[in-house]
Amino acid sequence: MNKKLLGVIDATTYYDNLKDLTTHRSLAALPFAGRYRLIDFVLSSMVHSNIQSVAIFPKYHYRSLMDHLGSGKNWGLDRKRDGLFFFPSPNLDTPSAGIGSFTHFAANLDYLYKSTQEYAIIANCYTIFNMDFQPVLQRHLDMGCDITEVCQNGQSLDMYLIKTSLLIELIETRNQTGYTCMKDVVNSLAPYTICTYEYLGLAYKIDSIPAYYQTSLKILHPYILDKLFIQTQPIFTKVKDEPPTRYQKGAVIKNAMVANGSIINGTVENSIISRGVKIGKGTVIRNSIIMQKCQIGENCVIDSAILDKDVKVESGTVMNGTAKKPLVIRKGTVQGALMNS
């Protein structure tokens, strides 16, 4: 049974209220927890479920996503048979119908025709979780289901298990049935047996700035961290060879997650620091997310903020947001004390 599943990741989703973080990258490539991207969680879950063929369907700004995943080597998907596949949307101006767009799939039907896996798991790219899909398949078979929808607390997680042949049929007959995506089929009165699988683990949808911010800080809690980053089911990501972070004399770190390659002179509390970040003397960072290669000068105060990659903060700058409305600084911008006065 371990080789029956085909992995399909829909990476076309765009949320307007995340645009400050996704103007130059797809949602799937959004950094998370200092060294990961959102897609790492669903992709790692598929790999741990013995899925050996994964198709990714991106749409907007997917260059950074392709650069992150490469050949799939870090996930063990660089193989001669099956492996990792990219199928960008040929219709960039067409709005996404929902997870599992049949129009997008139709442009790449050859992949499904050639697949040897009898069943397919169709998943979104924006849920933080660590899941084994094999029990979903087992329940699907035991219950004689046509489609199984994965839920948590009765709410859909936008993940669906379906027989590959039925998926092909739905795609080919979409113009006659009017179904545009998997949700249409599940919510309709279609003559199919629709089942649900209640997922009991942790799962967080990243569909807004507050959701991204609050979920990021949640993983600083040891219980959440242990439930999400399971030792026997690690979350894989792109490997970068960087030196350990250097903590200079006088640096203070409290309840923080710090990636490699950084240089810290100031104070970091309840925050996430990504790779290659530089923090100057006298600077205090609280309740914040600092992404890769940000440079923060001396005697700054940053509270409840999200700094995207390559942001430069000049010395003496004060930046404050709130837990409900964190301050977001876009990629590559410069923030100075005079600008904020």
Rank of each mutant, 00 (worst) to 15 (best):
L6F: 08
V8L: 15
I9K: 09
A11S: 15
Y15D: 04
D16M: 09
L18A: 05
L18E: 01
S26D: 09
L27C: 09
L30W: 02
L30S: 01
R35L: 03
L43S: 01
S44N: 04
N50W: 08
I51S: 02
I51M: 07
I51P: 01
Q52C: 04
Q52H: 12
S53M: 06
A55L: 13
I56V: 15
I56K: 07
Y60L: 13
Y60H: 14
Y62Q: 02
R63N: 11
G70V: 06
S71L: 12
G72H: 06
G76P: 06
R81F: 11
R81S: 13
G83F: 07
G83C: 09
G83T: 06
P88W: 09
P90R: 14
P90N: 13
N91V: 10
N91Y: 15
L92D: 08
L92T: 12
A97P: 01
G98N: 09
F102S: 04
A106C: 08
A107R: 07
Y111D: 01
L112F: 15
Y113N: 11
T116M: 13
E118C: 03
Y119R: 07
I121K: 05
A123D: 00
Y126F: 12
M131W: 04
F133M: 07
F133Q: 01
H140I: 03
L141D: 02
M143Y: 13
G144H: 10
G144E: 05
C145V: 03
C145H: 06
E149R: 12
G154F: 07
L157N: 02
D158G: 02
S165D: 14
L166N: 12
L166G: 03
I168N: 05
I171L: 05
N175Y: 10
N175M: 10
G178V: 06
C181T: 02
V185Y: 04
V185F: 05
S188L: 09
L189G: 14
P191D: 11
G201N: 11
L202D: 03
L202K: 10
A203F: 02
A203I: 03
D207N: 15
A211H: 10
Y213M: 05
T215C: 08
T215F: 04
K218S: 13
P222F: 12
L225Q: 15
T232D: 13
Q233S: 14
Y247K: 12
Y247Q: 08
Y247G: 03
K249H: 14
G250S: 13
A251D: 02
A259N: 08
S262F: 05
I264Q: 01
I264V: 10
V277E: 00
K278N: 10
G282Q: 07
M291N: 14
Q292H: 13
Q292F: 03
N299H: 13
N299P: 00
C300P: 02
I306K: 06
K312Y: 04
K312I: 08
G316M: 07
G316Y: 05
T317R: 02
K324R: 11
L327P: 00
L327R: 11
V328T: 08
I329N: 00
T333Q: 14
A337M: 09
N340H: 14
